[in-house]
């Protein structure tokens, strides 16, 4: 058994946690794995092929119950735990993060420890994403609009983007509010666009950049371009890195009386 499996099994058999959420090999690539008994942990793996953001399960009471939980964490999952805690969706200390440092298993029980680890392991945009983004930004406003109209026409409103996003934890999403109905809930070019604009605005400063929405999309809309681009704008305009647990970064849900913009006073 790997050291990670041993650690997870020990946490479960000691009763330190009632659940370990991690990854296992699936039928095609890796997939999330829920361990409730020590023997479940035998198949746990953690490597750079673990792409699902399992941090999203931490806010689902039906899965988590009320006890402590451990999660095997990639950097994206760690950022998720930090951001969800800053948004008061998790209680600091209730989630144990298991990470790998080479062969060794690290056990982090506090947000400060996770933040320290994240600070020492910054993740930059991939070259592929940088290239895609600069290609998109080089387009004229009209070309860019047409690009997105074309992409949004593909949307079938299955909400896999929302379901896979760890920061989309609302019990009732704005698209399901019907008094008044802000966004038409059926798939149509305009309402698809409204939906994605709303989603990315709600993610402003909160997105942890895991790319789960993009990978989940069954019709391959490049949703990461919206979230990465938004994170870049937030950084530029507010000087805050998105999804780092800095509540000042939640720019659309915070207000300062001494805001430098006049229009808001």
């Amino acid at each position: 058994m790997s050291k990670l499996s041993e650690k997870a099994a020990a946490l479960l058999s000691e009763g330190t946690v009632g659940l370990v959420i991690g990854y296992e090999q699936g039928t095609h690539g890796t997939r999330p794995k829920f361990c409730r008994k020590a023997e479940d942990a035998a198949t746990l793996i953690l490597n750079d092929k673990c792409l699902n953001n399992i941090g999203g399960y931490l806010t689902k009471p039906e899965l988590i119950g009320s006890g402590k939980v451990a999660v095997t964490a990639t950097l994206a999952v760690m950022r998720t735990v930090v951001q969800l805690t800053a948004e008061h969706q998790l209680t600091d200390g209730n989630v144990i993060v298991l990470a790998l440092d080479g062969d060794e298993v690290l056990q982090m029980a506090s947000i400060d420890e996770i933040k320290k680890w994240l600070a020492a392991h910054p993740e930059d945009l991939s070259d592929e994403n940088k290239a895609l983004l600069s290609k998109l930004k080089a387009l004229s406003r009209e070309e860019r609009w047409n690009f997105w109209i074309n992409e949004m026409n593909k949307c079938i409103k299955c909400y896999a983007c929302r379901a896979s996003c760890p920061l989309c934890y609302c019990n009732r999403c704005i698209v399901e509010v019907n008094c008044p109905q802000w966004i038409k809930p059926w798939a149509a070019p305009l309402s698809n666009m409204e939906w994605q604009i709303n989603r990315v605005m709600h993610m402003a400063g909160r997105c942890v950049g895991c790319g789960a929405c993009d990978r989940a999309c069954p019709v391959h809309i490049p949703l990461r371009l919206l979230t990465i681009s938004m994170a870049g704008d937030i950084k530029e305009a507010f000087g805050v890195a998105s999804g780092t647990g800095n509540i000042d970064g939640n720019v659309l849900s915070s207000f300062k009386p001494d805001d430098k913009e006049n229009f808001i006073h």
């Binding site: 829920f34 999203g56 399960y57 409103k157 299955c158 909400y159 896999a160 989940a216 069954p218």
Partner: peptide, 12 residues
Amino acid sequence: DRCLGCGACAYV
């Protein structure tokens, strides 16, 4: 356990 509750399976 791992099902996210999206509609991708139903819509395809």
